[in-house]
């Protein structure tokens, strides 16, 4: 479970042609601002897609539309062949199948680490408390915070909290995991511990859509890189191609800026 920066994980083998998440002609406005324009994107089962782009490009919004934390104005979003339901019980069921990890962790502040991870399984999946706790402890162990199970979120470091948030999402046994800038709020020394968990997840075959500025992760773990600017997808390519030979001027400009440092 380590990230070796220069040797890409070869994920191509397990990428199947079977589409899991499909966005078709998605449009979204914030008032007069067209934040998502003509978005067409298909993510296959087991695929890891990294979405990058300058801030304000719409990449977080894109990520949040997939479990309808942001509604869209037109177009269609399908997960596992089913269209995204409107509000209500059906939408809640849909969200249970789509794991999400937020930039600011959003652990439930009044619940212990263990309760954070078991809440969904008990209340949504209707598992027994014992069953949910067993599974939660396994997951906490996997992300390396098992010994913190009885603490409250505020007592943990940012990196630990984010790993708990990943465990919380995994506890629902989601079909796909969304990561919305999962390391942007972290101190540099904690970024790696979170990325390690994510790489491990990728290696285990989880379908992942990751919005991030971590180019190292994109290079090593992604099957595909999607580049967005001004609400549009400008480029889609495998990481090697994208980083060595970007096509659009915006991508070249963007890479020039972030890779200089």
């Amino acid at each position: 479970m380590t990230v070796t920066d220069d040797v890409p994980v070869d994920n191509t083998a397990r990428r199947s042609g079977d589409p899991l998440v499909e966005l078709v002609d998605v449009q979204k406005w914030y008032g007069g601002l067209h934040v998502l324009q003509d978005i067409n994107l298909t993510v296959g089962r087991g695929e890891v897609v990294v979405v990058i782009g300058p801030s304000g490009s719409g990449k977080s919004t894109l990520c949040r539309t997939i479990n309808r934390l942001e509604p869209i104005d037109s177009g269609q979003i399908l997960v596992d062949g089913a269209a995204l339901p409107q509000e209500g019980k059906a939408l809640a069921r849909h969200r249970a199948d789509v794991g999400m990890v937020f930039q600011s962790f959003n652990l439930f502040a009044h619940k212990t680490i263990l309760e954070n991870v078991t809440l969904g399984p008990i209340k949504v999946r209707k598992q027994s408390k014992a069953q949910a706790e067993d599974r939660a402890r396994d997951l906490l162990d996997r992300v390396g915070v098992a010994h913190q199970a009885d603490k409250y979120p505020a007592q943990l470091s940012g990196g630990q909290q984010q790993r708990v948030a990943i465990a919380r999402a995994l506890a629902m046994e989601p079909k796909v995991m969304l990561f919305d800038e999962p390391t942007s709020a972290l101190d540099p020394e904690m970024i790696k511990e979170v990325l390690d968990v994510m790489v491990d997840l990728a290696e285990r075959g989880m379908t992942m859509i990751v919005v991030t500025h971590e180019m190292g992760f994109a290079r090593t773990a992604a099957n595909r890189v999607v580049f967005m600017a001004d609400g549009r997808i400008l480029e889609t390519a495998d990481p090697h191609t994208f980083f060595t030979n970007p096509q659009s001027d915006r991508a070249k400009d963007f890479l020039g800026k972030i890779l200089k440092h």
Partner: peptide, 8 residues
């Protein structure tokens, strides 16, 4: 949002 995201 986190609560909605786990399907509550």
């Amino acid at each position: 949002e986190a609560a909605r995201a786990i399907g509550l």
